[in-house]
Measured scan of single mutants.
Amino acid sequence: DTCAICRVQVMDACLRCQAENKQEDCVVVWGECNHSFHNCCMSLWVKQNNRCPLCQ
């Protein structure tokens, strides 16, 4: 699966965690819609949006 926000494989660290060298801290979360995201990506997304980027 791919993170619906950053488009990186969810089993890999997101771009932000890769840049900050925090790959082991990058975890996967699932929305109520069952789409998967990196927690970092979702945390930033929900500050500006309240819907899944794929379900909009």
Rank of each mutant, 00 (worst) to 15 (best):
W30I: 13
I5W: 09
D12M: 04
A13K: 15
D1I: 03
C17R: 03
C41Q: 00
C52P: 03
V28L: 10
W30E: 15
C6P: 00
R51C: 12
A13M: 08
L15E: 05
Q56P: 14
C3D: 00
C40A: 03
I5K: 13
I5R: 09
C3Y: 00
Q23Y: 06
E20L: 10
A4V: 06
H38F: 00
W30N: 14
L15G: 14
A19L: 08
D25W: 00
C33A: 03
P53D: 03
D12A: 10
R51L: 14
F37C: 04
H38G: 01
G31A: 08
N50H: 09
L15K: 01
N21M: 08
E24S: 13
R7S: 15
R51T: 11
F37W: 06
G31V: 01
Q23P: 07
E20A: 11
A4E: 15
L44E: 07
C40Q: 02
A4I: 01
C52R: 02
C14K: 03
C33Y: 00
C55L: 02
R16I: 08
R7V: 01
Q9P: 15
V46T: 08
T2K: 10
H35F: 00
C33R: 00
L44W: 09
L44D: 15
C33I: 00
N34Y: 05
N21G: 11
W45G: 13
A13G: 15
M11Y: 06
N49M: 08
W45Q: 15
C26I: 02
D1A: 05
R16G: 11
C6H: 02
N50M: 07
E24V: 07
L44Y: 15
V28H: 04
C6M: 00
M11C: 06
C3E: 00
F37R: 03
C6Q: 01
T2V: 00
D1G: 07
A19R: 08
F37T: 05
D25H: 12
V28D: 10
L54A: 13
H35N: 02
E32N: 07
V29K: 15
G31P: 15
Q9K: 05
T2G: 00
I5H: 10
C52A: 02
C6F: 00
S43T: 07
C40S: 02
C3Q: 00
C3S: 01
A19G: 09
I5S: 08
E24A: 08
L44S: 07
S43C: 06
V27K: 07
Q48L: 12
Q23F: 05
Q18M: 07
Q18Y: 06
Q18I: 09
C6D: 01
V28K: 15
E24M: 07
P53I: 04
E32G: 12
D12N: 07
E20N: 00
N34Q: 09
H38R: 02
L54R: 14
Q9V: 09
R7I: 00
D1V: 08
C33K: 00
E32C: 06
Q18N: 08
C41T: 03
Q23S: 08
C17A: 01
D1S: 07
P53T: 04
L54V: 15
C26M: 09
E20H: 04
N49K: 07
D12S: 08
C26S: 11
N49A: 11
E32H: 05
C33G: 02
V29D: 15
Q23K: 12
F37P: 04
E24R: 12
C40L: 02
V27N: 09
C6R: 01
